[in-house]
Lab assay of single mutants.
Amino acid sequence: MAAAAAAGAGPEMVRGQVFDVGPRYTNLSYIGEGAYGMVCSAYDNVNKVRVAIKKISPFEHQTYCQRTLREIKILLRFRHENIIGINDIIRAPTIEQMKDVYIVQDLMETDLYKLLKTQHLSNDHICYFLYQILRGLKYIHSANVLHRDLKPSNLLLNTTCDLKICDFGLARVADPDHDHTGFLTEYVATRWYRAPEIMLNSKGYTKSIDIWSVGCILAEMLSNRPIFPGKHYLDQLNHILGILGSPSQEDLNCIINLKARNYLLSLPHKNKVPWNRLFPNADSKALDLLDKMLTFNPHKRIEVEQALAHPYLEQYYDPSDEPIAEAPFKFDMELDDLPKEKLKELIFEETARFQPGYRS
C-alpha cells in the first residue's frame, strides 16, 4: 500500500510507478496490472468513496492506442447498470505532455475469474450472474457493438453480487458484411471463450460470437473449470467437437473457408456428449439454455433477447427493466489503419471533457 500523499506533496508512487492523480484522489492501494497499465484503488475526496484507477501508458504502440481509444469512446457513450462506466479521466493539459491516461471507475471487490478459483456457486448465484451478463449484453448488442472478449476476468463483482462487464478494448461495431482481413492475426481474445466460426472463417462476425462466450462462462460457473481449455488453435476446435459432436452437413455448409471445411470433413465422426453427463448436478433449465448458447452453427445460436426470456431466468426476466441503447454506435473511421500519432490526438480530444474549465 502506498503511503497517503500529504496535501501538495506531488504524485504518489505505487510499486515504483508514478500515479499522478492528486489532489482529488489519494490513499492509493495496488490492485493489479494488465498488459499496459496498473490498477489501484484510491480515495475520492470529492465523492467520499474509494474508486478504481487504471493507469494506461499506450502511446508507444499502435495496438494499445487503438484499444484505449475504443474503450474510452464506447464506455463514455454507454450507460447501463451492468456495464462499468467511466467516472473521470485524468491526463496532462497538453498533448505533448500526455504520456499516461488515468481512467477512474467504480471500485468492484472482485471478478468472476477470482471468485470461481475459490468458491463453488449455488444455482441461485449462477442464475443471477447469468441474468446480469445477458442484461448488459442486450444493451451492448442493441448499440450494434460486439464485445468480443467476454470471459470471467472481464466480469466485475461486488459483495452485493452486482455484476458489471468491463474491458471493451477489443470491441467492434457489428459488421457481418465487412471482410476484416487479418482478423485472426489481430484477434487476441482469450482462445477458450472463442466461437468456432472465428477459427473457421475470417469473413465478418456477428453478435452470436458473444453468446458463445457467455455459454462458455455459464459452463464454467457450473463446474469451476473452463469447458474448452484448448492449448492452441486446432486443439481448441477438437475440444469443442469432442463435446458438441461432429457438425451436420448443414452446419458445414455455413463454413465459407474450404480449407477449414475440408479439415472438419477429414475428422472421424464424434457423438455429442449429453450435458447432464458433463454437469450431473446442474439445473435442467440451465443445461437447456447452455445447449442453445453453445450451438456450433452461429445462425442457430440463441440471441440475447431470447436467452433473457428463457425459463431458467424467469424469476428475473423483465423486458421493461432491460434497457437498450438510445442509438446504434458508430465509429467515424476504422481505427485499425491509423498511425499511433493520430490515435493519440483522438484520445486527447475524447478525454477533453474531463479537463478543468472544459467548454463543449
Rank of each mutant, 00 (worst) to 15 (best):
A2M: 14
A2R: 05
A2E: 00
A3H: 03
A4N: 06
A5C: 09
A5T: 13
A6E: 13
A7S: 13
G8P: 08
G8S: 07
G10F: 11
G10R: 13
P11G: 08
P11T: 14
G16Y: 04
G16C: 12
G16N: 02
Q17V: 10
Q17E: 08
Q17G: 03
Q17N: 06
G22R: 14
P23K: 00
R24H: 13
T26K: 05
L28W: 06
L28Y: 04
S29F: 05
Y30V: 05
G32C: 14
E33S: 01
E33N: 02
G34E: 13
G34L: 04
A35G: 15
A35L: 06
G37P: 15
M38Y: 13
V39D: 00
V39P: 10
V39T: 14
C40W: 12
S41I: 04
S41Y: 15
A42E: 11
D44G: 10
V46F: 14
V46S: 10
K48F: 14
V49M: 15
R50N: 12
V51F: 13
A52M: 13
I53W: 07
K54P: 01
K54F: 01
K55E: 14
K55C: 14
F59C: 13
E60W: 13
H61T: 13
H61Y: 14
H61K: 08
Q62S: 13
T63N: 10
C65T: 10
R67F: 09
R67I: 15
R67S: 13
R67M: 13
T68H: 15
R70D: 01
E71C: 14
I74N: 15
L75S: 10
R77M: 05
R77F: 11
R77N: 06
F78M: 04
R79Q: 09
R79S: 14
H80R: 00
N82G: 06
N82A: 10
G85C: 15
N87R: 10
N87P: 02
N87K: 15
I90M: 06
P93D: 03
P93W: 02
T94F: 13
E96Y: 08
E96T: 00
Q97E: 10
Q97S: 12
Q97W: 11
M98V: 00
M98A: 11
M98T: 00
M98L: 13
K99V: 02
D100K: 12
V101I: 11
V101E: 15
I103P: 09
V104L: 10
V104C: 03
V104F: 12
Q105H: 13
D106A: 00
L107W: 03
L107G: 02
L107P: 00
E109K: 13
T110I: 10
D111C: 06
K114N: 15
K114Y: 11
K114M: 01
L115S: 02
L115C: 00
K117M: 14
T118L: 13
H120R: 10
H120S: 03
H120F: 02
H120M: 11
L121C: 10
L121T: 02
L121A: 02
L121Y: 04
N123C: 07
D124Q: 06
D124M: 07
I126R: 03
I126P: 04
C127P: 08
C127E: 12
Y128M: 05
Y128V: 02
L130R: 04
Y131L: 03
Y131V: 06
L134Q: 14
R135E: 06
R135C: 13
R135K: 10
L137P: 10
K138H: 06
K138D: 05
Y139G: 10
I140S: 09
H141C: 07
S142W: 03
A143Q: 13
A143W: 06
N144H: 09
N144Y: 15
V145E: 15
L146K: 06
H147T: 10
R148L: 14
R148I: 09
D149V: 14
P152F: 03
P152R: 09
N154V: 03
L155R: 00
L156N: 14
T159F: 05
D162P: 06
D162K: 02
L163Q: 15
L163M: 10
L163C: 09
K164L: 04
K164R: 12
D167T: 03
G169E: 03
G169C: 14
R172G: 07
R172M: 10
A174S: 14
P176S: 10
D177Q: 11
D177Y: 13
H178E: 10
H178D: 08
H178L: 15
H178I: 11
D179W: 11
D179L: 04
H180P: 09
T181D: 06
G182W: 15
G182S: 02
F183I: 15
F183H: 01
L184Q: 14
L184I: 05
T185Y: 02
T185P: 15
T185V: 00
T185G: 03
Y187F: 14
Y187Q: 03
V188M: 06
V188W: 09
W192Q: 09
Y193R: 09
I198M: 11
M199R: 02
N201P: 05
N201I: 15
S202N: 11
G204C: 10
T206R: 06
I209V: 00
D210W: 04
S213F: 10
V214T: 07
L218G: 10
M221V: 00
S223G: 12
S223A: 14
N224M: 05
P226I: 04
I227F: 15
F228M: 05
P229A: 06
P229D: 03
G230E: 00
K231R: 00
K231L: 09
H232T: 06
H232Q: 11
L234A: 13
D235H: 11
Q236N: 02
Q236F: 09
N238R: 05
N238I: 15
G242D: 13
G242I: 08
G242A: 10
S246M: 07
S246Q: 01
S246F: 09
S246R: 12
S246D: 01
P247I: 07
S248K: 10
Q249T: 10
E250F: 08
E250A: 06
E250S: 00
D251H: 04
L252N: 11
L252K: 08
C254L: 08
C254I: 11
C254T: 04
I256M: 08
N257M: 07
L258N: 01
L258H: 05
A260G: 09
A260I: 01
R261Y: 07
N262R: 07
N262V: 04
Y263S: 01
S266G: 15
L267Y: 02
L267R: 00
P268C: 04
P268T: 14
P268L: 09
H269F: 01
N271A: 04
N271W: 03
P274V: 11
P274A: 07
N276P: 03
L278I: 05
F279R: 03
P280R: 11
P280H: 14
N281V: 08
N281A: 07
N281C: 10
A282E: 11
D283R: 10
S284N: 05
K285I: 15
A286V: 06
L287V: 04
D288C: 10
D288I: 11
D291T: 04
D291Q: 12
D291K: 07
M293E: 01
L294K: 01
T295K: 06
T295F: 04
T295P: 15
T295Y: 02
N297F: 11
P298S: 13
P298L: 09
H299D: 09
K300E: 07
E303R: 04
E303A: 09
E303L: 00
V304W: 13
A307H: 00
L308F: 03
L308Q: 13
L308K: 01
L313P: 09
L313E: 01
L313I: 13
E314M: 02
E314A: 08
Q315N: 05
Y316W: 02
D318Q: 01
P319R: 06
P319H: 07
S320K: 07
D321H: 04
D321K: 00
P323L: 12
P323E: 07
P323A: 04
A327I: 02
A327W: 03
P328Y: 03
K330V: 05
F331H: 11
M333F: 04
E334T: 00
E334C: 04
E334K: 14
D336N: 13
D337R: 03
L338Y: 06
P339F: 02
P339M: 10
K340F: 00
K340I: 06
E341R: 09
E341F: 05
K342N: 15
L343P: 01
K344G: 09
L346H: 05
L346K: 11
I347C: 11
F348D: 07
E349V: 13
E350Y: 04
T351R: 03
A352H: 06
R353L: 13
R353M: 11
F354S: 00
Q355I: 06
Q355Y: 03
P356E: 11
G357F: 04
R359S: 15
S360N: 10
S360M: 11
